[in-house]
Amino acid sequence: MVGDWVTERLPENWRWIVTTRAAVALVLVVALLSVATGILRIDQAAADFGPLAPHVPVAVQDAVGFTGALTGFLMLGSVLALRRGLRAGWWATLLLLPLTAVQGLLQASPYSLPLVVLSLVSMPTLLLTRRRFDRSLSLTTTQLAAGGALVGVQAYGTFGAYALREDFDGVEHLLDAFYFTLITSSTVGYGDIGPTTEIAQLFTMSVVVLGVASFGIAIGALVGPAIQARISKTLGIMTDSELELLENHVLVLGYGDLTEPIVNELADTDEQFLVVTRDETAASELSERDIRVLSGDPSDEGPLRRAKIESARTVVVTTNNDAEDAMAILTARELRPDVRIVTAATDRENTAKLERAGADDVISLAELGGHLLVRSALGSDESSVVSRLLESE
């Protein structure tokens, strides 16, 4: 791929400058400029094209304004996909950027010059960040069916209206038929095109019924999960469908000062992990960092069952409170007798108690701190905290 070839030959310090945020920000600016210049161009006459006018078809001259605005709105959608790291958003943006540049040239306006320049600048920036947009777009069967129903109804209305064009006042071409279908199925109904016979009236009623149903189903299936995911992210709650995907994961019970470096190291690895905490503020902050988190008491059976402890690889208990750690260990051991449980004792005297509660390995923070200090003073290499927690006995 061109993006991979360019990225491999880019100096290392440049790769840090060309960040994902910079790419998304550039595309967002291009989208906003496309909308703004498109709106400004709508009310301008074709003669405003100047020297380009003789070479640009009249239909293009008439449509360049609203199509530029439409492209801008489509690119705003691709920006949202880029923010989620979706590969589909990357491809959509890569296809739309040349289109915005061409539309900027056709608009032949002083306001469109920044649009052309930024569109051209954004393309190599997008190519350099290709590898960072690696999430796949997964649609459920319901979402695919809803989208298919919406498209099917529009096709039914368009071709049906065109076939019955003799029974309609104002339908002469496929574009007229599509316009009639879209306006009718969305219940806008301007009245400029109407049926003149009974069969056309019956057909129009079917388009209204099917159109309203398909729009409602599509909005519920396509937009509903996104709203639910956003609410869940704000509240720090994973949905059941997201929890079902967990398998052979690391279960982190509790969240505090000790947990933060563990979560950071896990996030830098390929380990699949989930944090269970009753601290709603911490849960919200973790969600904003795209870290899987479930709000709940880590010592209760319900949250641990939802976190799929039965398929967890390891349980790490770090609530910063030895008494709460013991309760979480007891619950985890009862639900999953064979799972490896690792914890840390804030008080050295509680090490044996936590082992009796069911922990396989208890790390004394005092001993670990002294050990790391000596290793650092002697210049020896030390494995990460995560490696220490996940290593087998």
Results as ranks from 00 to 15, higher is better:
L378C: 00
R375K: 13
A23H: 10
V102T: 10
P51G: 08
Q272I: 11
G148N: 07
E244M: 12
T346V: 12
F168T: 06
A177H: 10
Q272K: 14
F180H: 10
V151S: 12
Q143R: 02
A323N: 09
A345V: 09
E301H: 05
L354T: 10
L253D: 01
R84N: 09
S122F: 06
S232I: 02
S34Q: 05
L96H: 04
L245D: 12
R21D: 10
A357H: 05
A36T: 15
S185E: 15
G89R: 04
A226V: 13
L144Y: 06
S376L: 09
D257Y: 15
L365F: 08
R9Y: 15
L274K: 08
A155R: 05
F215W: 15
I219M: 04
S34F: 01
Y162T: 06
M238K: 11
T281H: 13
R41V: 00
L243Q: 09
G68P: 00
I217T: 14
A155K: 05
Y179R: 15
V117L: 14
S138H: 11
L144N: 09
R131A: 10
F215Q: 15
D338F: 02
F203R: 06
M327L: 13
S34M: 03
Q61I: 03
L95K: 08
L74V: 06
L28S: 15
R135L: 06
G104F: 02
D361F: 07
T100N: 05
S119Q: 05
A282N: 12
F168N: 04
I309D: 02
G224V: 04
R375G: 04
D169P: 08
V153S: 04
V362P: 04
M205R: 11
S214E: 02
S232C: 07
S376R: 12
S376A: 13
G379W: 01
V188A: 13
D322M: 09
N350P: 07
S138P: 05
T37I: 07
R15Y: 02
I341H: 04
R336I: 01
I17L: 08
V263S: 00
R132Q: 14
V317D: 03
A31N: 04
D322T: 09
V362W: 03
G50K: 08
P225K: 01
G152V: 04
R9N: 15
T319N: 02
F215V: 14
E288C: 03
L294F: 06
T351F: 03
V212Y: 07
T67R: 05
E12W: 07
E367V: 11
L174R: 14
L294M: 10
S186C: 12
S392D: 14
A149I: 10
K353C: 03
D4M: 07
E265I: 07
G211Y: 13
T181C: 10
R15I: 11
D297Y: 13
L294N: 00
I237H: 01
A155W: 07
I309M: 01
R130Y: 13
A92N: 11
Q154F: 11
I309Y: 01
G216N: 05
M123I: 07
L80P: 03
R9T: 05
D338I: 00
L33Y: 02
T343W: 02
V250S: 01
N350Y: 10
S384P: 08
T100K: 01
R340Q: 15
R306W: 00
T37W: 00
L246P: 02
T331Y: 09
